[in-house]
């Protein structure tokens, strides 16, 4: 059903985004102050021979143009190089840790969506509850994940021992990290959702529905909610970034496996190949999610046709 030309154009745009990210990371690393090889070898007083050897292996002793060509050539063959710190192919390092982060992000997203829908449906156009809930949402959205996580751990893990403090396999171990990560999203989701629902509730078709004898719950769920969901689809692209950024903190607080920890470790250790790989993977994920969002738009709101989308 999707117009092919439209889809091809979107795909091309997504590829451009990834290509741009690749360029950005390539040049950003070369603009950083100091010698990247020394930074990578860190505080350990490397011998001059080792410094030169590593420089040569990473081809950092070649002219910039040659480095760039090599980088792009490797990129097109899907070769992300080898992690300097872990002495393991970058693809393997990332692939290994992808699943726990996908689990965490999916669970947090589902949780946030569920909570936001519930809150919005219950509080739209109900001023008294709305004020209280909306304040709470603001608090949740502005509390740092680190703090939320520590609080949850202190009570539910250290004191009452309902949940494991670290790692945690399966659903039980996922609860606290997912709740922590979702807490930051719920506020934003439900504020937007409620706003849209309230606008919908003022539309004439709601009056028509009421006149037809539909109950309040039915109106909210069947008519108003559907209107509210459209901007939420837009937010999904943003949420992807928030979830991934949040994972860095949440995975560290809850000692979970995942890409957040890989990123944090690679940045701290100046593991150039891994950082590059992570930037590319997140750019790719971003581009794909946004592509999916655009497709979803057309499904959720059939009024949008190819001419009105850029």
């Amino acid at each position: 059903m999707l117009p092919l030309r439209w889809f091809a154009r979107r795909l091309l745009l997504a590829a451009t985004v990834v290509f741009g990210a690749a360029n950005a990371v390539f040049f950003a690393f070369r603009l950083l102050p100091g010698d990247p090889v020394r930074s990578m070898l860190g505080s350990t007083n490397p011998t001059p021979e080792l410094v030169e050897q590593v420089r040569h292996e990473l081809a950092l002793d070649e002219p910039l143009a040659v480095q760039y060509g090599r980088f792009m050539r490797r990129l097109f063959t899907g070769d992300l190089g080898e992690s300097f710190q872990l002495q393991q192919p970058v693809g393997e390092v990332i692939g290994d840790q992808l699943w726990p982060t996908v689990q965490l992000a999916t669970a947090a997203f589902a949780l946030a969506l569920l909570a936001a829908v519930t809150l919005a449906v219950l509080t739209a156009h109900r001023p008294r509850v709305r004020r209280i809930v909306s304040t709470l949402e603001l608090v949740a959205a502005s509390t740092p994940a680190f703090w939320t996580g520590m609080l949850l751990l202190a009570l539910l893990s250290f004191r009452w021992k309902w949940f494991p403090a670290m790692g945690g396999s399966g659903a039980v171990g996922l609860v606290l990290p997912a709740v922590t990560l979702a807490a930051g999203l719920v506020g934003v989701f439900s504020q937007v959702l409620r706003e849209e629902m309230e606008r919908a509730l003022e539309q004439p078709f709601v009056l028509t529905a009421r006149a037809r004898g539909s109950g309040e719950t039915a109106i909210r769920l069947r008519h108003a909610l559907r209107h509210g969901l459209i901007p939420l689809v837009t937010l999904a692209g943003w949420a992807m970034g928030a979830l991934f950024g949040g994972a860095v903190v949440v995975e560290s607080v809850f000692s979970r496996q995942g890409l957040g920890q890989v990123t944090a470790g690679a940045v701290a250790g100046r593991d150039l190949p891994v950082v590059t790989g992570m930037v590319l993977v997140s750019a790719l994920a971003f581009a794909l999610i946004n592509l999916a969002v655009d497709v979803l738009y057309r499904i959720v709101d059939p009024r949008i046709d190819e001419r009105s989308i850029g």
């Binding site: 520590m150 670290m166 790692g167």
Partner: peptide, 19 residues
């Protein structure tokens, strides 16, 4: 050997008997 980077989490895990 469990990796618990946050000092507060590590200490809590010890005091609650999880490690």
């Amino acid at each position: 050997v469990e990796f618990i980077p946050e000092a507060a989490s590590r200490f809590g895990a010890l005091s609650s008997g999880q490690v």
